[in-house]
């Protein structure tokens, strides 16, 4: 049920985001979604890619510091209130969300929410029980590509 997210350390300097992305593109690795967290000194690039093992290898070989983290994807209808319902369910169960980001799926007017929970396994149980649709990796990739 869990999804592997790839994080890359970046210095906060002009042009630094382009380098790892260009590297992945040269290798033909497509990025489904990304989010960038930044401070004045450094940034963390977080990405969802289908071929995360190869992406991690390619980046490491080029001296990027890479980390894999388990995240949870929830698929909701792309309409006002879609996200709020999921957040309410998480809040009731006191699930701690480290961060999240979202992207639209090409099919059926739906959106994928990517959550970094402190306890991903409990989150999956809680959200599934609350009627949210926790989306499998394969299903997610199929919906995008």
């Amino acid at each position: 049920m869990k999804l592997q997210q790839l994080s890359v350390f970046l210095e906060n300097r002009p042009g630094h985001l382009a380098e790892p992305l260009a590297l992945l593109s040269r290798e033909g690795i497509n990025i489904l979604s990304l989010s960038l967290a930044d401070t004045s000194d450094f940034g963390i690039l977080r990405m969802i890619v289908r071929d995360w093992e190869r992406a991690a290898q390619v980046l490491k070989a080029d001296d990027w510091v890479v980390k894999l983290t388990e995240v949870v994807a929830v698929d909701v209808e792309d309409r006002p209130g879609g996200l709020a319902e999921v957040l309410r369910a998480a809040g009731r169960a006191e699930l701690k969300i480290e961060y999240m980001y979202a992207f639209s799926l090409r099919r059926n007017n739906r959106a994928a929410l990517i959550f970094r929970f402190e306890e991903p396994d409990r989150a999956i149980d809680v959200l599934s029980a609350a009627g949210c649709h926790v989306i499998e990796a394969e299903e997610l990739f199929a919906a995008v590509e």
Partner: peptide, 18 residues
């Protein structure tokens, strides 16, 4: 230089290392 051991996907964790 950041190492894989101290790197985290969480900004707060990296700020703590710093």
């Amino acid at each position: 230089e950041v190492t894989p051991e101290v790197f985290s996907d969480k900004v707060r964790a990296l700020e703590d290392v710093r």
